[in-house]
Amino acid sequence: MAIEGAELVKAASLLGAGLAMGLGAIGPGVGEGLVGSKACEAIGKNPGEAGLLTRTMLVGQAVSESTGIYSLVVALLLLFVV
């Protein structure tokens, strides 16, 4: 039985959703790890400022996470709208 028509579109959109989520999660993962490691170094050098550094780290991580969130939105659109 050949896959054609609407089934092909559905299969392609499911495949695209998986690819979008998997590839889109690479960048934010690397970025958040870098931010976390740099914040650890900075806290080690200057433990008195730990509160400020943690706050800045969380904001930076949440901002660098946004490309992953875009890929999540694209994947959801592909799953439930197409």
């Binding site: 901002v63 996470e65 946004s66 969130i69 875009y70 999540l72 939105v73 959801l76």
Partner: peptide, 16 residues
């Protein structure tokens, strides 16, 4: 776009 989609995506993703 970026500021509103960030909040929406995080909360909606958690829900799902």
């Amino acid at each position: 776009i970026s500021i509103s989609f960030r909040l929406f995506g995080n909360i909606m993703g958690g829900d799902i």
